[in-house]
């Protein structure tokens, strides 16, 4: 088999052109949506769709399901089924909506046999790229892998809260909304416990590392 070239034209070049590079304020976004401004819709899509997809994919490996859910969320934004005034932050609203949509679809598609089984699938695996400053040299791959597996042992909801906080940049109230938690305090507890587990797992590795040296 011979392989000949891949065309270099980017297929979303045209989509990108229509998007303004200027960052829109929350108010501009809400107003644009209320007026049915298509460019605002495009703005939201280009800005958040990859994050929405990455987030949704933590609950299922079914790419089509995640895409359908994203489609639904936008359709509902367009149809203004949700009162837009209530949306305080667009990104956390989009995440929460995608989550609800996916869970709804998964429940719907679950066969009778395992209907009683709750779907608890949550990926949210954390990658913590520890710099040498913190514990060790980068070259120590084996140890890094140990950290990775230790991080996996942290509860899924703790991992989710940690990723939302440190990676997605949500504040506690937003995380509570996305995860369906009572209040910000519950989020604080989740993050605190998760961080403690990461800290302990690193401590274990450091001990191992020292033992190796000794």
């Amino acid at each position: 088999m011979k392989v000949f070239s891949e065309s270099s034209i980017t297929s979303n070049g045209e989509l990108k052109k229509t998007t303004s590079s200027r960052k829109l304020s929350h108010q501009e976004i809400v107003q644009g949506l209320e007026q049915g401004d298509e460019s605002v819709l495009g703005y939201i899509y280009h800005r958040y769709v990859q994050d929405m997809f990455g987030f949704g994919s933590q609950f299922t490996r079914d790419r089509e399901l995640v895409k359908d859910s994203i489609h639904e969320v936008f359709a509902s934004l367009i149809a203004r089924r949700q009162s837009l005034e209530k949306i305080r932050s667009i990104k956390s609203y989009l995440f929460a909506a995608v989550y609800h949509r996916i869970i709804y679809d998964i429940k719907k598609n679950t066969t009778f046999k395992n209907k009683n089984q709750k779907n608890n699938y949550r990926e949210f695996n954390i990658e913590f790229s520890v710099q040498n400053r913190l514990i060790m040299e980068e070259s120590n791959r084996e140890k890094l892998n140990k950290i990775k597996s230790a991080i996996k042992n942290i509860g899924a909801r703790q991992r989710q809260a940690i990723l939302h906080y440190y990676y997605d940049g949500f504040v506690h109230e937003e995380i509570a909304m996305i995860m369906g938690l009572k209040n910000a305090h519950s989020v604080t507890k989740l993050i605190s416990r998760g961080l403690k587990a990461i800290r302990e797992s690193i401590a274990v590795v450091v001990v191992l590392f020292m033992t190796d040296l000794g």
Partner: peptide, 17 residues
């Protein structure tokens, strides 16, 4: 700043469009 998703799937160009 070093905590991230270890697996965060992305839409490919075709899916994106």
């Amino acid at each position: 700043t070093n905590i991230r998703y270890s697996d965060k799937p992305r839409l490919n160009d075709t899916e994106y469009n």
